[in-house]
Amino acid sequence: MTKFSICLLLVVLAIASIQADGNRRPCAGRCTGHPLSGGKSVCIRNKATNVCTRLPACRLREKNCLRRDNGLEPIRETCITRCRNIPGSSGVGQCATKLRPRTKECQRRLCHDDKVASCWRDQQGACVLQTRCEAQKRNCVRNPLNQWVRASQWSCKGNVVGGGVRRCRTRPIVIKD
């Protein structure tokens, strides 16, 4: 073969490979070099096994690009707090539970007997006049060791509804001879 025919063959092969690659869309944001060590981590969750994988965001883009090229559904990321038990910027492990899953449900609960305010106290000696429903909603976000519990009306003497939290009134110690 002559030099001309070899060059012509190489040009034809190059054009064919360019056309073959032209049918696929290029993937943006490939992970190369230093972006692996820095950058944002994302969390993906397998719902069937409840196994979470923490990986750099660019790795997820790469995986989704390959899945798109193969006609598959993209992998969706979940809340990064589900990967809080996995150390480092990448790894696999059991998914952590959702943070405060019941708080929103608890605070949205409808109240039927929201008419009569009574006295409620906490473990730190604070008292407030509020309805049972208000107390339940406030307890949703309070420490379980410092919940609002019913107290005698006498403890809230001087408090008004909507007047905020005050120190509970205590009974004076009476020393009898």
Rank of each mutant, 00 (worst) to 15 (best):
I80W: 11
C27G: 03
K40M: 13
G71T: 02
G22Y: 09
V160E: 13
Q107G: 06
V11W: 09
S118Y: 04
Q124H: 10
A126T: 09
C133H: 02
R61M: 08
K115E: 15
P74N: 07
G38L: 14
C119I: 05
R121F: 04
V51M: 13
G91Y: 06
L10K: 08
Q153A: 15
G93R: 06
A96T: 04
V128S: 04
T97D: 13
N139T: 08
C43L: 01
I80S: 10
K40G: 04
C27H: 01
I86E: 00
C156Q: 01
F4D: 12
R171P: 02
G39V: 02
N64L: 03
S155T: 10
P87H: 06
I18D: 06
C111L: 07
L36T: 06
W148D: 01
D21Y: 14
C140F: 02
G158C: 06
K137Q: 12
S17A: 11
T78K: 07
G162L: 00
K40D: 09
L110R: 14
R102P: 00
I80C: 01
I173S: 11
V42Q: 00
R24A: 12
T2E: 08
R24Q: 13
S41F: 05
C156V: 00
R100E: 09
D122A: 03
N159Q: 10
R67P: 01
N23T: 14
L99D: 14
P56T: 04
E62K: 04
A16N: 09
Q153W: 07
R109V: 05
R150Q: 13
I86C: 01
G22I: 02
S118W: 02
R100I: 04
V161M: 05
T97R: 15
R171E: 10
K137C: 00
G162D: 05
G158E: 05
I6D: 04
S17C: 11
S89F: 14
A16M: 11
G71K: 09
C106T: 03
R76V: 11
K104R: 15
C65T: 02
A20S: 12
R169G: 07
P35C: 10
T49M: 03
T32L: 13
L9H: 05
L9V: 10
N159M: 09
V11R: 02
V11G: 04
